[in-house]
Design a protein around this nucleic acid. Structure first.
Length: 128
RNA sequence: AGAGACGGCUAAACGAUCGCUGAUGACGCAGAGUCAUCGGAGGAAAGUCCGGGCUCCGUAGGACAAAGUGCCAGGUAACGCCUGGGAAGUGUGAACUUACGGCAAGUGCCACAGAAAAUAAACCGCCGAGUAUUCGGUAAGGGUGAAAAGGUGUGGUAAGAGCACACCGCAAUCGCUGGUAACAGCAUUGGCAAGGUCAACCCCACUUGGAGCAAGACCAAAUAGAGAUCGAAAGACAUGGUCCGUGUCCGAUCUGGGUAGGUCGCAAAUAGUACGCCGAGUCGUGCUCGAGAUGAAUGAUCGUUCUUGGACAGAACCCGGCUUAUCGGCCGUCUCUUCCU
RNA sequence: GCCCCGGUGGCACAGUUGGAUAGCGCGGCCGCCUCCUAAGCGGCAGGUCGAAGGUUCGAGUCCUUCUCGGGGCG
């Protein structure tokens, strides 16, 4: 039997439709952002997307995180964090950037926790 | 027992849940998607230092230039790599290291010091003649320097000197013997040939067309054939630096306008491993494994165990090497020292 | 992924074919000048020549391997 077309139906996954894949999409979000917030070293930029689910894009520059192993690890942790908390970001396109070098591990997780708190406050006030 | 040399292997394991990605199958008109099964980073994936495959370029022909390599032999698709051998050097030794062709082709350079740094020469010395300083002989000794026309001993001499002799070293013979060769040994001859530097220019031998998967091929959307200047049988252009040769003929330059992506290339081949041949390697037989993304996949959480928190580190066309990084653990062969029997 | 440049006092740069104690400008410090400051004048300090190894009597320079920084190719 056919499944609904909404990819957000799948509660746990993070499929290609839920990712930003075009340069133009990144540019439009970064230029016309609705919400920007930074909790060192993570920067979050978001824009409402008129969809029923969230989409994720990440930028981790080689200049900031030099080693490919660390860079992959940072991106995996960002992706996993977004996947676990994506209900918070419903109907938003989100771009996550790592601005400074951070060792993947507890410091990054702590920073992401702060980002989530700040996001919840911002979204609550803007909705009401 | 301690210290060490060489070679090889390994690179935490298992389970549960939630996820990512490719293939196959099923459902689905198709697409999107869902479910099931299977696969899913390394010894260096790294640096991009070499070599090849593959693709395109106007032929890829010649000459010059440029770059690289450099003891000998073998291996290889090829190499600057590997294996074996020679020579030289280091280490008590096992072993290790070596850009190790040629300055008796040419040119250049060798600061300071020193008499003199390359046609050789003579500062202090030594000796003889002469007598207030010169002439001649000499290269033993001193001094300078990184480097100064073999070393030691004996004879010899005015003093000395390969001047003579012995031994060592050196050179020559295209000598003899061994070796495919580099080279080694022996014999004979020569008093000995008057520096170093080629990671200085260079000479000799050999090698190299250029670019690189952002190569390139196909599909498709959009834009639209604009304006100006210059040159025309000489010139311009062509993917290599120059020339010759070759090809094209309206070409070149500038300004302006427009630009959206997708599919293939893309993974099984020159692979690894066991046995046979001294070795690299080749061949034969058998066995093993089989990543393929494109804002870019291996993760998260929990539990158990260990060496108690696991180093260096992440494929992007592929392969063979080199180099560099690396916590440890294990295995094999061998060396030295000390002790015991 | 591929290709190409560069690293010399605090800053921006020289350093020719290897040769003596690596220079110049700005900046810093001290002194002179001035009532004081600036300007000017005189003097001084400050360098692992990105790192390691090699060739050489001798390396900023030549060779090799790393490291850091920058640029180009859609």
């Amino acid at each position: 039997m056919a499944q609904p077309k909404n990819p957000a139906r799948n509660s746990g996954g993070l499929t290609r439709a839920q990712r930003l894949t075009k340069r133009a999409e990144f540019d439009s979000i970064l230029q016309d952002a609705d919400i920007q917030l930074t909790r060192y070293p993570v920067r979050l930029v978001a824009k409402a997307n008129n969809l029923e689910f969230a989409r994720l894009g990440m930028t981790v520059a080689k200049k900031n995180v030099r080693m490919a192993v660390d860079r992959n690890r940072v991106k995996r942790l960002l992706r996993e964090w977004f996947r676990a908390n994506k209900e918070h970001f419903r109907s938003y396109d989100v771009v996550l950037s790592v601005r400074e070098y951070v060792r993947p591990g507890d410091p990054l997780k702590a920073a992401l926790e702060k980002v989530l708190q700040a996001w919840d406050q911002r979204v609550d006030t803007s909705d009401t």
